[in-house]
Design a protein around this nucleic acid. Structure first.
Length: 572
DNA sequence: GCCGTTTTCGGCCCGACTGTTTTCAGTCG
């Protein structure tokens, strides 16, 4: 069972109840849904282990909701949910996914205009029926029409690797306004989430007016979505939404905390604040009774007054970080300076853009102690996989280059295909000659789960395969991950001493955050690689590092944080 | 529906912006 399935039902119940003007219950259902969604353990397992009492330990779950969870686990249904669904037409709940249209208005549109789905809504807008409704107007109709447009474009999220440079560029442009104190990107970009929905920019200044002016008139603005004295939203020409908020200097920490989120993390912090007699908002932490300012200049200060150590943004998902913080068990996250080498990169020998020597020089410039050159094996035809003969030629060249560049150790490696039957694309005889072998799947992606799992596990049993490259094979926005039993992969990786890769290519970020955390829990050691196909892609490794941090990785979980001598001593 | 060093009853995270209001509800983050 997926926790997210159950959470989805609770969210939907909340929406339906809200449409019926039920008070408070919607919030209760949503709260429980959020807790279940971010629960590291499967709800079914919780119930199996600890029964109903275990379920009630989940925050926001009490007697009533625990009973509903049990009902769902045992009968696969929730009676009340089925009843509620009967009361509202199918697909009406889809309407509230339209930006600008919430449960209350959706219900009103249904009641007054008989709108049951997106098609009905489009027709009603075309006939200007909405504008005549009391509570609505020409503007509301226009807004919903615009929301419908955005909805039609899909809820496609933007890759972190795409959003980060855009955010940086926007900040540079806004910075030109005089009188800016701090300016920083917040939101999911600051939490380094693999994909982001919008960009949040936070600014401190005495006078917000010129900043709002500048922000809403940036060269790439397609449309101003909202404009107020301290907060505005714009849509960029690339359809990315950007929010900007201006606050006073003394609120900077509280505001940064607030706008970094996640929403779920913030809600828990505010609940802690209340219990301590405070009120927490983007303006600061205040005494609930006297309204006196308690903290807010820095995030550290806010956390401290709440009785917590500083929690890094990457962990703020309400996925156990607050409990860990309370118990002093927060991980010391791996940092960019800890990385001593990069163990996956391509050259013109296969599908890279630069020569082996150019890659080496670029790696030296980045200050690495060691790298591995890892071009493709023959069966990856589209990537000009190397025949054994060409590989041997490259090995000789690497040997020569190693003599020329003594500041870095060059591991002669290869990214070798794991064939559909689980055997490797080069003979063991050749693999034996290599310093570093990555095993990767690049073909037959659609194998059934058990076959794919066996395929990858068999590769790990090969004594020369040191690491599995991009273990899930996903390309965000383009290709689903292959169907593979990750738990089994983690167990085999642990058993055979094979590393698993965190591939840093922007659409890959593979392993992903939750898998990284699970792999570490399973005792697996990881490797962060750029998988660079160009000298300019070596820097992608920072994206993999961010993902590792989101997966609670410490320095000791990452093999390429070891200095060369220790790294070389790691035996399979 | 949940929850308790304000409360077992009566609260529930907090605030900005918008549009339709003539003092506030809906939506969003």
């Amino acid at each position: 069972m997926l926790n997210s399935d159950l959470a989805k039902i609770f969210y939907e119940i909340a929406d339906i109840l809200e449409m019926q003007h039920v008070q408070w219950k919607p919030a209760a259902y949503r709260k429980a849904a959020r807790a279940i969604e971010s629960l590291p353990e499967d709800v079914a397992d919780v119930f199996k282990k600890k029964g109903v009492e275990g379920l009630k330990e989940i925050s926001g779950v009490g007697e009533g909701l625990a009973a509903k969870i049990v009902e769902y686990l045992t009968t696969k249904r929730i009676k009340e949910y089925d009843e509620l669904k009967k009361k509202i037409p199918r697909h009406l709940s889809i309407l509230i996914d339209i930006p600008g249209l919430g449960p209350k208005h959706a219900e009103l549109l249904h009641k007054k205009l008989g709108i049951n789905n997106i098609e009905d809504l489009k027709k009603a807008i075309a006939a200007h029926k909405l504008a005549k409704l009391s509570g609505f107007g020409a503007k509301s109709e226009e807004n919903i029409a615009k929301g419908l447009e955005l909805f039609a474009q899909g809820t496609a999220r933007t890759l972190l690797g795409t959003a980060l440079p855009i955010a940086e560029a926007l900040i540079m442009q806004i910075k030109q306004v005089k009188g800016i104190g701090n300016i920083e990107v917040a939101g999911s970009v600051r939490r380094r989430k693999e994909t982001i929905g919008d960009i949040d920019i936070l600014v401190t200044a005495k006078d917000p007016k010129p900043i709002m002016e500048r922000f809403t008139h940036l060269p790439d603005v397609k449309r101003i979505m909202a404009q107020g004295p301290t907060k505005s939203s714009i849509l960029l020409k690339n359809n990315l939404q950007v929010d900007c908020r201006v606050l006073e200097e003394k609120s900077y920490g509280a505001a940064l905390n607030y706008f970094t989120g996640s929403k779920e993390h913030n809600i828990v912090l505010r609940e802690i604040a209340i219990k301590k007699g405070f009120k927490l908002s983007e303006y600061g932490l205040f005494n609930r009774k006297t309204n006196a300012f308690v903290a807010g200049r820095t995030e550290e200060e806010v956390y401290k007054k709440l009785g917590l150590p500083y929690i890094p943004p990457e962990l703020r998902e309400n996925a156990g970080e607050i409990e860990a913080a309370r118990q002093g068990k927060l991980p010391v996250l791996v940092e960019e300076k800890d990385l001593k080498g990069d163990l996956h990169m391509h050259t013109t020998y296969s599908d890279g853009n630069n020569s082996t020597e150019e890659m080496i020089k670029a790696a030296i410039a980045r200050g690495y102690e060691y790298i591995a050159i890892t071009d493709h094996s023959p069966s990856v035809h589209i990537a000009h996989g190397m025949t054994e003969k060409r590989l041997v030629k490259q090995l000789a060249e690497i040997e020569k280059l190693q003599k020329k560049y003594k500041d870095i150790t060059i591991l002669a490696g290869s990214e070798v295909d794991i064939l559909p039957n689980g055997s490797m694309d080069y003979s063991d005889k050749i693999l034996k000659r290599l310093d570093w072998v990555i095993g990767s799947v690049h073909s037959a992606f659609k194998m059934p789960r058990d076959k794919m799992t066996r395929r990858i596990c068999k590769a790990m049993e090969n004594p020369y395969v040191r690491v599995i490259g991009h273990p899930s094979g996903r390309l965000m926005g383009k290709r689903e991950p292959y169907d593979v039993d990750m738990k089994a992969v983690f167990q085999m990786a642990k058993k055979t001493g094979t590393f698993l890769e965190i591939d840093s290519q922007p659409p890959r970020l593979d392993l992903k955050d939750v898998h990284i955390r699970a792999a570490i829990d399973a005792g697996v050691t990881l490797v962060i690689d750029s998988d660079a196909h160009d000298v300019n892609q070596l820097r992608f490794i920072s994206l993999g590092l961010m993902t590792a941090r989101r997966g609670w990785a410490t320095k000791k979980d990452i093999a390429n944080c070891l200095p060369l001598d220790k790294f070389l001593k790691l035996k399979k």
